[in-house]
């Protein structure tokens, strides 16, 4: 699978990229919402793994921007975040409305679990 990983943290970005590559996937890793959008223009991923807490723009803004383009409306997205608010009863349904397949809370998501979540999309 071709995976777009949107992860602002350098160490986590490297770690998650390596884990997904070891599982046999092609990974492109971007640290900001803007560079992720630029990447979509180059090649469409099979899945996006997205941290909501990005630098200048947050992941929800990224989602709204992405979903506003017809050709990007059906790309599956897994939210993989350190922000515990994403697990709330209010926030999670809102994310689902944006076409998010699954919300994973990073502290409780091992590398194996992340790989499994990505591969479940096939």
């Amino acid at each position: 699978m071709y995976i777009l990983l949107v992860e602002p943290d350098r160490v986590l970005g490297q770690t998650y990229s390596e884990a997904l590559k070891k599982a046999g996937h092609e990974v492109v890793w971007k640290r900001s919402a803007q560079s992720a959008l630029d990447s979509l223009d180059t090649k469409l991923p099979d899945v996006i793994v997205l941290e909501l807490q990005l630098g200048l723009h947050n992941g929800v803004e990224f989602m709204y921007e992405m979903r506003s383009y017809h050709e990007w409306q059906n790309i599956p997205v897994i939210v993989h975040t350190i922000n515990h608010y994403s697990r709330s009863d209010i926030f999670e349904p809102a994310l689902k409305q944006l076409g998010i397949i699954e919300v994973l809370y990073k502290p409780q998501t091992s590398l194996k679990k992340l790989v499994r979540a990505v591969e479940n999309i096939k």
Partner: peptide
């Protein structure tokens, strides 16, 4: 604190070859 601790945990999970990085974090 969650972030550095998360980094340590995931790095350690990935490979034992990254001990210097783990130490720095």
């Amino acid at each position: 604190l969650k972030l550095p601790l998360l980094q340590i945990a995931r790095l350690a999970e990935l490979s034992p070859e990254v001990l210097p990085t783990i130490a720095a974090i």
